[in-house]
């Protein structure tokens, strides 16, 4: 249990998706103009990461890894399908996003009108794919660990986008040199926020 909690805190702060690995930058910069939409996209990312990472974990564990197919019988034990992992992971993510979109549209139209435009964006959000690939690379051992990691990374991403959106809302009133306006200053702000988050780096959990 203690391991899970430290993994959770670690994936939110120390290994923050945005500030430590630059994952999901495109939508992070594009959708952080106001806090409300940022909260919507952030929530969608938490949800999708929290589900696709464990799904891909199971696929990796029982289908893709070297020797993972041994549950089918001894003659399958030496098959290694890991070269297929990119295509399987992205297919799971795209299919899941499509599914969520349809379910939400059917049963919760109000939520759909809030989240709807962000859901298709998420299929090509690097943070989601990155979550699955990091899960595979770091070799998390149990389903609980993979789920915790997925949720933690999602929450880290959520915190990052909401705080950037809050800063950018305030920035509208400040006097920035014209060529630096918009994109340039946003990059520099994200860099400064990254430096602040580096304060967590030395923490051993």
């Amino acid at each position: 249990m203690q391991d899970l909690i430290s993994l959770f805190v670690k994936s939110i702060f120390v290994d923050n998706m945005i500030f430590a690995y630059f994952l999901g930058m495109c939508s992070f910069l594009a959708v952080s103009k106001n806090v409300k939409t940022a909260v919507g996209l952030g929530a969608a990312v938490i949800f999708v990461l929290g589900v696709t990472v464990p799904l891909n974990y199971m696929l990796n564990e029982y289908v893709l890894k070297a020797g993972a197919l041994s549950w089918l019988g001894a003659e399958y034990a030496d098959i290694d399908l890991s070269f297929l992992s990119f295509i399987i992971f992205i297919a799971v993510i795209a299919a899941f996003v499509q599914l969520v979109e349809m379910v939400v549209e059917k049963f919760a139209p109000a939520l759909y009108s809030q989240l709807g435009i962000f859901l298709p964006l998420i299929a090509v959000n690097c943070a989601i794919m990155g979550g699955s690939l990091f899960m595979q690379q770091r070799g998390y051992e149990t389903l609980a660990e993979a789920t915790t990691f997925g949720l933690g990374s999602g929450i880290g991403w959520f915190l990052a986008i909401v705080s950037l959106a809050a800063i950018r809302e305030k920035l509208a009133y400040s006097n920035v040199p014209a060529p630096l306006k918009g994109l340039g200053i946003t990059f520099i702000i994200v860099g400064l926020m990254g430096i602040a988050f580096m304060g967590f780096m030395g923490i051993q959990l």
């Binding site: 500030f19 430590a20 690995y21 630059f22 040199p177 060529p179 630096l180 994109l183 340039g184 200053i185 946003t186 990059f187 520099i188 994200v190 860099g191 400064l192 926020m193 990254g194 430096i195 580096m198």
Partner: peptide
Amino acid sequence: MPPMALIITGCFIWLQR
């Protein structure tokens, strides 16, 4: 460190614009 990549990119954008 990671943050410097962002700040350098920001400066490139500044220059180009």
